[in-house]
């Protein structure tokens, strides 16, 4: 027996991906609620980042009309007030990301407890702990990546609309593409990392469930 045991593969990754994707589709309502947390947090991050990048860019534009708009708003110089506001915003962003992490953590944990029978059954059918972990991490990272992409678009849209309101069409004319792209990349990274990190403990709990859980009928 042991020889073959060594050959046993947990299940091809493609199967795990397929299963995770299906799980999300079937429990779309729950997934959307989980995702909304990350969408909002990342949209906030992205809009703050984009707004700052736009302001930085406009400040260095050699255009008297733009400069007069900034002057009228008191934003033409790197004043202490501007710095303070940025620091405050950074804090808020960090806090919202933390709240988002806890939210995903909680919802994944609930999902694990709800699915005790499914997890137990898979273990009865021969799934290894690592496969169970893979399913939950994948599920969370799918949610994370999709939520983050939506959040990035939403944040970008919001900051552009707000920018247009504040500075007029100059925003589009001098749009800081590179900096915004950088913020987008950073947001994607943060969003993905958060969604995977938040799922580690729930996935571990799921993997440690005993196969005998599948037999339970009392819930």
């Amino acid at each position: 027996m042991p020889k073959e045991v060594g050959q046993q593969i947990v299940l091809p990754l493609s199967k795990a991906i397929e299963l995770s994707a299906k799980s999300i589709r079937v429990r779309l309502g729950r997934s959307l609620i989980t995702m909304s947390g990350i969408i909002l947090a990342i949209a906030f991050l992205m809009s703050i980042g984009t707004s700052n990048a736009v302001l930085d860019k406009l400040r260095h534009v050699d255009d008297p009309r733009v400069q007069s708009v900034l002057q009228a708003k008191g934003l033409d110089l790197d004043s202490e007030a501007v710095h303070e506001e940025r620091a405050r915003n950074t804090w808020l962003v960090v806090l919202s990301l933390l709240v988002c992490l806890v939210g995903i953590w909680n919802s994944m944990l609930m999902s694990v407890t709800e699915r005790f029978r499914e997890i137990g059954t898979m273990k009865c059918l021969g799934a290894l702990d690592s496969f169970i972990i893979k399913i939950f991490l994948l599920e969370s990272s799918f949610q994370g990546v999709v939520g983050t992409l939506v959040g990035i678009s939403l944040g970008l849209l919001l900051s552009v609309v707000m920018g247009l309101g504040s500075y007029g069409s100059a925003v589009l004319k001098y749009f800081p593409w590179l900096a915004v792209l950088r913020w987008g990349g950073l947001s994607l990274l943060i969003g993905s990392v958060i969604s995977v990190v938040a799922a580690i403990y729930p996935a571990y709990v799921a993997a440690k469930m005993e196969p005998v859980e599948a037999m339970r009928v009392d819930r």
Binding site: Q8, T121, K123, C124, L125, G126, A127, L128, A214, M215
Partner: peptide, 15 residues
């Protein structure tokens, strides 16, 4: 690993 193998190949479960 061996237990998972046993459950997978030797035993079929019905609940």
């Amino acid at each position: 690993y061996e237990l998972a193998w046993l459950r997978c190949r030797k035993i079929g479960y019905i609940f």
